[in-house]
């Protein structure tokens, strides 16, 4: 039986957005304290795309993310404790400390991998969709990527392949208007990235990616289409990151806080739920989730480091 993706969103989605926000704010703090090293890209302000899409997926659907992956992993069901441990390079992390922030992987919950190579995840998602299709399974594949990724050759090759082979894949472009430090207009004259998908005959929508009540039904429709043999979809989610490109960015300049807050997906969805007379269900969510995340971080930092012998394992799969 083919399942229908939920098009509704409710307090549990607010909770998930808070979980991601709390996780990333904590990660930022740990980075500042030197407990997390390397490149750390936060998606604070972009939680609605992760929760909107992943909340409409089944556990066996496969997600492929990029260099800003924490929200996607958490929304797909990864445990914050094992994610913190991975970010901190501990043995108890999902990848045993080998991957770090940009290379998270929690395949047991359908978060197959993240990649540090912009657009490197797109063909992988296509391949997963191809495998589902060939094996007669109903699993859908999703790739999350940014507006910068849409300038790569790989992106255009993948649109063509996905369309040509009618793959059950949903391509989710989180268009935050920036690739590193330069605006989209410095990278392309194409204003609507969804136009690219149009060219290849892929059903597409450009939506307010910071409004969960918009992202969820759009994602559900795309996922249902893929699962029912309708082929690929492209979702251009217009969003806004409230932080610099990476933590520790010395040139970080962001606009007035007030302007940013109006775009904050958590505040917007909270207001929506209040307006829907569901205030009572929201009580204590933020406090509870922050406490849970705090605890997860603490445990992660108390976990052991990998050992020297761990270095040499996993290079190739053993029979």
């Amino acid at each position: 039986m083919v399942v229908t993706a939920p098009a509704q969103s409710g307090p549990e989605d607010l909770e998930m957005m808070w979980r991601i926000r709390a996780f990333e704010e904590k990660a930022s703090e740990l980075f500042a304290r030197g407990k997390i090293s390397g490149l750390l890209h936060l998606a604070i302000g972009q939680e609605a795309t992760a929760v909107g899409v992943c909340g409409a997926l089944q556990p066996t659907d496969r997600v492929f993310s990029g260099h800003r992956p924490h929200g996607h992993a958490i929304a797909k069901g990864a445990e914050t404790g094992r994610l913190f441990a991975e970010l901190a390079g501990r043995r108890t992390g999902y990848c045993g400390g080998k991957g770090g922030s940009m290379h998270l992987a929690a395949p047991e919950v359908g978060f197959v991998t993240a990649t540090g190579i912009v657009a490197g995840n797109l063909p992988l998602a296509l391949g997963a969709a191809l495998s589902s299709k060939c094996r007669g399974e109903s699993d859908v594949a999703v790739a999350f990527f940014g507006d910068g990724a849409a300038q790569t050759g790989l992106f255009h090759e993948c649109l063509n392949l996905a369309s040509l082979w009618q793959l059950p894949v949903v391509l989710v472009c989180e268009n935050n208007g920036f690739a590193e430090f330069s605006p989209l207009s410095a990278h392309t004259v194409v204003e609507r990235l969804a136009d690219h998908a149009d060219t290849y005959g892929i059903p597409t929508e450009t939506i307010d990616g910071n409004d969960l009540t918009v992202v969820r039904p759009a994602a559900a429709a795309a996922i249902d289409r893929a699962r029912n043999g309708g082929g690929p979809s492209f979702l251009e989610c217009l969003t806004h990151r409230l932080r610099g490109h990476y933590e520790g960015d010395p040139t970080l300049k962001r606009g007035a806080a007030a302007r940013d807050e109006a775009k904050d997906p958590i505040q917007r969805f909270t207001r929506f739920l209040h307006d829907a007379a569901r205030s009572a269900e929201l009580e204590g969510i933020e406090v509870r989730v922050r406490a849970e995340v705090e605890q997860a971080a603490e445990e992660a930092l108390a976990a052991p480091w990998p050992e020297r012998d761990d270095l040499l394992t996993n290079v190739v799969a053993q029979p």
Partner: peptide, 8 residues
């Protein structure tokens, strides 16, 4: 492959 974790 170069591992992430600082000690590794």
């Amino acid at each position: 492959p170069v591992p992430f974790s600082p000690p590794l």
